[in-house]
Structures are given as C-alpha cells and as structure tokens.
Computed example of a mutant assay.
Amino acid sequence: MPSAVRHITVNCAEPYEPYALAEFWSAVTGCPVHPEDERGDDEVGLLPLVEGGPMMLFIRVPDAKGEARNRVHVDIQPDTTRDEEYQRLLGLGATLVSDERKPDGRGWIVLADPVGNEFCVERSQAEKDEWDREHPDEN
C-alpha cells in the first residue's frame, strides 16, 4: 500500500516564530491557520484547501538554515500572472533569491520566505496555455 504525504514541514528558527511564518504562508496559499494553533506554539499547521490534502506544518527548531540550497521546496502556481504574484509576495515579506525567467516567458522566480526557506513561483496555467498556443511546435 502506498504512503500519503501528510505534512510539508518547514523549519523555523528564532527569532522568527512558527505562527508568524504560518501567517505568511497562509497569505501566500489561502490555506487557513489551524484553529487550534496559537502564537507561541512550537508547531503550527495550515489546513489544506482540498480535503485529505497535505498540511503545511511549521516547527520551531534551535538552529538557523544553513547556506546550502533547500533539499525540498514548494513550487507555487498563481491564478494571476507570475509577475503579479511575485510583486504580491515581495509585499508579504518574501525576498528574491534568483530570477530564472527566460526571455521567451518561460522559467520561474526563486524567492525565500521570511526565515530563508526557498520556494519557486511558476507561470500561471493561463500563461502556460497562451505560450503553448503561440508555440505549438515547441511543446
């Protein structure tokens, strides 16, 4: 029998608090903070938007993120354009790590959340569909 992904766990070191990081990711994803979780908790979860989907879980850890690239990260696909979402996320407190957008519109943007966990912003499905229509021989 296969295993299901139950949590996507994000480490959170002082001085940033798990609840504050969960609020950031709640604003990014639209997933609400678990109603039983409170400021000061060592573990804070986000309820999945889809029943049975994995929860994002934010856990207090004693050590800061090292300089190495994350081994696991989240890729998000906005319902607006990639560039609009990029600006929104910067406003929420994300920082730019690298810009991997290509001149033809493909690619992604690597951001970091307030504690340095990296994640990528991809093109929206509408942007991908438009590119596919305009470039049928390159699919």
Rank of each mutant, 00 (worst) to 15 (best):
101 R>T: 13
99 D>T: 02
13 A>Q: 07
106 R>M: 14
85 E>H: 13
137 D>H: 10
64 A>S: 13
5 V>A: 14
120 C>W: 06
16 Y>E: 10
69 R>C: 07
3 S>P: 01
81 T>Y: 12
55 M>Y: 12
50 V>D: 12
100 E>V: 02
81 T>M: 09
116 G>Y: 11
3 S>Q: 13
41 D>A: 15
71 R>T: 15
77 Q>M: 12
64 A>H: 04
129 D>K: 04
3 S>R: 13
39 R>V: 10
14 E>V: 04
135 H>Y: 08
39 R>I: 09
105 G>K: 08
73 H>T: 02
135 H>K: 04
92 L>Y: 14
98 S>V: 04
101 R>W: 05
28 V>K: 03
96 L>E: 06
127 E>K: 03
84 E>D: 15
36 E>Q: 13
30 G>E: 12
31 C>R: 13
114 P>G: 03
3 S>N: 13
70 N>L: 10
9 T>F: 04
54 P>N: 07
83 D>Y: 03
19 Y>I: 02
110 V>H: 03
108 W>R: 13
94 A>H: 00
105 G>M: 07
44 V>P: 02
50 V>A: 14
133 R>I: 00
72 V>P: 01
16 Y>F: 08
98 S>C: 10
13 A>T: 08
114 P>I: 03
65 K>G: 00
35 P>E: 11
131 W>T: 01
64 A>L: 10
126 A>D: 15
74 V>D: 02
81 T>R: 08
28 V>I: 08
62 P>N: 07
75 D>N: 07
45 G>Q: 12
97 V>W: 00
58 F>L: 14
54 P>T: 05
8 I>D: 02
54 P>H: 05
93 G>R: 02
104 D>Y: 01
17 E>L: 12
43 E>C: 14
80 T>F: 02
125 Q>E: 09
61 V>C: 14
86 Y>W: 15
48 P>H: 06
84 E>C: 04
39 R>D: 12
75 D>H: 08
71 R>I: 03
78 P>S: 07
11 N>P: 11
